[in-house]
Design a protein around this nucleic acid. Structure first.
Length: 418
DNA sequence: CGTCCACAGGAATGACGGGCGG
DNA sequence: CCGCCCGTCATTCCTGTGGACG
């Protein structure tokens, strides 16, 4: 038992340490939603975007834009920065609406969110999508000026719910007399335009801005600049920055990842009571970030999707070379019978596999094996330990996983069930 | 050179829980 | 309360397909 006084002392100690951080000046600078004043190595993209959007200042409708590039290349932050300036400069002549399509991943949700940002009240359900679109359109017309709609991660929306919203949004202007709508679609994946109706494609892609991945040196620049603002002097050495940059450069030049690494490394250093962030801390941060990512993805995931993941894990132990959809499905059925659950159909599992690929937990390439059919070659792309740990959160799977661990450590890889 | 595997992945449909307007 | 519409998960039935095998 802890007495009340010592408990209070503990809390005070935590707060005191926090206030007198030896490590951070301002941790927020390293958070993903921080918008910096300067964006090194993105001058060209900023200029191009500003040029495209500038007509809004004279009240005409700017071209629609597709902003394209891998994760962590500064797409979102660039767009937000330019828009913030534009709205400021226009003195009320322009508004910007921002929707992340991963968060609002259906036509209906996107439209209601847009309405909400216009200040209209729209119920979360109960209305037809057409009705919500009409309300949005009325709202824009009433506003009577230029509205710039940012659809972040628009490829996710298109893959999940098709291009119907995009079609309607791009066509909105024909039915408006005073209001105007421009669309900025941000995407990780340029291939998504192939899924679009040709009319939507040409309308949305009037302009394209490409964001290439950052290279090692550019990442170093970015990190150095942020570290200067985030940390106390002398806390972060150049070698720590180089290490973060090198890891992120390896992973497709993802600046967000680099900043996350630096921040989490700093947090670990602080928790350990160190005065400096070391390369050890960065390595620990890498492990922690990966673990967090996996358990975050697994949390709230449908039960059978977890079963499929487990089946993939078991199947890769069994057939180390090539795991096909068929292998996964039969293993999955075994897993189901193990815990007394009726399995889903193969069709459904095929969809789940595709979703797992979209989530980045699994690589599932379609391959043709000639006589031996057409299938997916399935590969886990997360660490085994992270996966098992996260799966163990599910009480029903715990016994199965612990027996799996045992049989694995004793070298028996074939007998997993019964 | 045609066959035929082992699935991919589209379309239609339905069950279900939930929110809203009336 | 009802009737309507929503999103989600799942099933059923279906057509399509690249290339190794015979």
């Amino acid at each position: 038992m802890i007495t009340l006084t010592t408990a209070l002392a503990v809390i005070e100690e935590v707060f005191r340490r926090f206030k007198e951080s030896r490590i951070f000046l301002c941790r927020d600078v390293l958070l993903p939603d921080y918008i910096p004043e300067a964006l090194p190595h993105r001058e060209e993209q900023l200029r191009k975007l500003a040029l495209i959007l500038a007509p809004a200042l004279r009240g005409s409708k700017p071209s629609n834009v597709i902003v394209y590039g891998p994760t962590g290349t500064g797409k979102t932050v660039c767009v937000l920065l330019v828009l913030r300036k534009l709205v400021e400069e226009s003195r009320g002549g322009v508004i910007s609406l921002y929707v992340n399509c991963r968060q609002y991943d259906t036509s209906y949700r996107v439209l209601t969110e847009l309405c909400r940002q216009l200040g209209l009240h729209v119920p979360n359900s109960g209305l037809s999508t057409g009705e919500v679109l009409r309300r949005f359109s009325d709202g824009i017309e009433e506003y009577g000026k230029v509205a710039i709609v940012v659809l972040d991660e628009v490829d996710v929306l298109v893959k999940r719910s098709g291009d119907a919203v995009l079609y309607h949004l791009t066509r909105l202007n024909t039915s408006l007399s005073k209001g105007k709508v421009s669309i900025i679609g941000i995407s990780n994946d340029l291939r998504f335009t192939e899924l679009l109706d040709p009319r939507v494609r040409s309308s949305l892609g009037e302009e394209t801005i490409v964001f290439p991945p950052y290279n090692y040196a550019e990442l170093c620049d970015i990190l150095r600049e942020r570290a200067r603002l985030a940390f106390k002097p002398g806390v972060v050495s150049d070698s720590v920055i180089s290490l973060c940059a090198a890891i992120a450069a390896r992973e497709h030049g993802d600046a967000r990842k680099a900043l996350d690494l630096l921040r989490v490394a700093g947090e670990i250093a602080e928790r350990e009571g160190c005065e400096q962030v070391t390369e050890e801390h960065v390595k620990k941060a890498l492990v922690q970030l990966e673990r967090d990512r996996v358990s975050e993805l697994l949390r709230g995931m449908p039960f059978h999707m977890k079963l499929v993941l487990l089946a993939i894990y078991v199947a890769t132990k069994r057939y180390p070379l090539t795991v096909t959809t068929g292998d996964v499905y039969s293993t999955y059925c075994e897993v189901c019978s193990c815990i007394g659950v009726t399995p889903l159909t193969q069709r459904r599992v095929s969809d789940i596999l595709a979703q797992l690929e979209l989530l980045g937990l699994v690589e599932a390439k379609v391959v043709n094996l000639g006589r031996y059919g057409r299938t997916r070659r399935v590969k886990l792309i997360v660490g085994d330990e992270h996966l098992l740990k996260a799966l163990e959160e599910e009480p029903q799977l715990r016994p199965l996983i612990s027996s799996l661990r045992q049989s694995l450590s004793s070298g028996v890889t074939s007998a997993v069930v019964k």
